[in-house]
Design a binder for these strands. Structure first.
Lengths: 341, 341
DNA sequence: TTGTATGCGTTATCAT
DNA sequence: ATGATAACGCATACAA
């Protein structure tokens, strides 16, 4: 059915070895025979079978990207970053979502064995321990935001630092009653951001108030829901730090639905700086993570590991976020608490 | 190095055929030997090599998705839709961007030969002709928004209808001076939307004005730039129809930067209904395309073709968009033209 | 029920 | 410079 290297060899009157040589430009071939081969290739419309090729070369030229979800700006930016680094190097990208489920992640990793040369893996939940035993001999991998306690090279965002940046900014503006919309339970990134939030408050002597730590799951809807709860707190917080932009966006919509203006009534800070953050009204103040760059750097690291297997051992690279101050934060109205307006 | 089926066979004291049988649950195997095999699998931590397997089965269980870009909400939604349909069926997803370049697209398609079982392909530019000659015998494929003139099954969005929906809405609101921010030159979707825009105007006897057709390239920046030109037109349009949401978002920001309020000063309509459209301020009125569903349906179609090769011939499915009316459109101030306010 | 042997489409080794 | 042929890791038809 499909035309193979044999067909070409027969048509050109040469051996398969010769065809392989001219197709891959490896080894010496007379220009005359090379011409005949190329002609046959063209006539038969021959295209090498990637799968078969990679069986012998032991290189698939595919790298796998396993992410918790395949939804939203954040992950699409990661994928874009991976692609940007992979394609120029001749690699394709196989994407897969794990739904943050350790078991599903393991299943995916197994299914990917023999289909990819390496992995860029984001696994913010638990189950990283099992990973070390199951993955390493199998396939080179670079972790994104691993919990840290793993033998794999990883690229991590300094979430605590980022969160402190956000909350310090709010504190600097005079806010004291600052709420936090948390990420999902058991998510390492979320845990670190929560920690940073608490640290920043403690650093200024602001007492922690558990009621200000609202649950969330990194999705817009949960931000919206948090806004509803926020609106009813008394006294109402004057600022909110959402653990990611998606929730901040939902929060913004929820506050607006409640008749609350950002930043006049409440200041709002997000985390990630997704592409849309700057296009919101008000433009969102947020902790900037160069998301696509995280994907690219992880991929470049992986590519290096593939090219040079001894490079496997590795210090973690850490990405330091910055703060993008835009329009969603404003100085607290200091008079309000004393004079009650 | 890597542990193969042979190692397992040896360790369990059986033949490779038997190992294959128990691993794939095919054929009859005594429970006793099955147990021995499973034990060996576990002990050696054996995982089948996907690439090798697919060489014999002639099934990679991977479907390729080739899109013009890998940037933005739209494509990430497509990918999500594809994944949603593919994964439950046991398929993985290989993504690739073509930069809307026919030559690059062809290169990608060749590289994917033997790596994927089928393709979901979006190729809005020219070069579809070459596709028919180069792709079909190679790999089953479903086109997204192909220019229509192709032998492949395809799933197309009724762009003209969608555009008419948008512009009719504006006309119904009393707007007459309606600008359009176009998509990229040579892009089929963009061309159809422009056509729909013109048709809708003509349908109400509104004379076309070339100066109201502003250039764009589907990206936010070009929407922003268009807003700047818009602001300087005299008389200023009272409404804008952007050929996609990304440009509408950019347009919104650009108008705001110019001190123009949406919808008070100008009404704005987008196209696509990306997830973020509803979270803008004002929430964007836009032509709703069930983007993820387009990806899913295309994938399901492809999966059917793979399961039943005779199904290859196909009528085009067409997705009919609807209008999501939100906050960015408002009735034209009728008095303004007569009484000059 | 289990094993042997062949083939999947290529590349790579070793001759010639 | 070119050709035979053995892997690559697995599934499967055929034997036993």
């Amino acid at each position: 059915m499909t035309v193979t290297i044999r067909d070409v060899a027969r048509a050109a009157g040469v051996s398969v070895a010769t065809v392989s040589r001219v197709v891959n430009a490896t080894g010496q071939v007379t220009e005359a025979t090379a011409l005949r081969v190329r002609e046959a290739v063209r006539r038969l419309d021959y295209v090498p079978h990637g799968g078969a090729r990679s069986l012998t070369t032991r290189r698939t030229h595919v790298i796998g990207v396993v992410l918790p979800e395949m939804y939203g700006d954040f992950f699409s930016e990661i994928i874009r970053g991976v692609d940007r680094a992979a394609r120029p190097a001749g690699y394709h990208v196989l994407v897969s979502g794990s739904h943050s489920d350790p078991a599903e992640t393991m299943a995916v990793l197994q299914a990917l064995h023999g289909r990819v040369d390496g992995l860029v893996l984001m696994m913010p939940g638990p189950g990283l321990g099992r990973l070390d035993r199951s993955l390493p001999r199998r396939t080179p991998a670079v972790l994104l935001n691993g919990a840290g306690a793993t033998a794999h090279p990883s690229l991590r965002v300094d979430n605590r630092r980022g969160a402190r940046l956000a909350v310090d900014h709010l504190l600097d503006l005079g806010h004291r009653r600052i709420a936090h919309v948390r990420g999902p339970e058991g998510n390492a990134d979320a845990a670190e951001r929560l920690l940073g939030y608490r640290e920043a408050l403690a650093g200024r002597g602001v007492a922690a108030d558990p009621r200000l730590e609202l649950p969330g799951d990194f999705r817009e809807d949960s931000g919206y829901a948090a806004a509803e709860r926020l609106a009813e707190l008394v006294p109402r917080p004057t600022a909110v730090f959402a653990a990611n932009d998606a929730m901040a966006i939902g929060c913004l919509a929820g506050l607006r639905a409640r008749g609350l203006e950002v930043p006049e009534d409440l200041s709002l800070v997000g985390f990630d700086d997704v592409p849309n953050a700057r296009y919101l009204a008000p433009a969102l103040t947020t902790v900037r993570v160069p998301i696509a760059e995280v994907g690219s750097r992880a991929t470049e690291r992986l590519l290096r590991m593939l090219a040079n297997p001894t490079e496997a051992g590795g210090e973690d690279e850490v990405v330091v976020p910055t703060l993008s101050i835009r329009e969603s934060t404003l100085a607290a109205r200091v008079a309000v608490s004393r004079a009650s307006h």
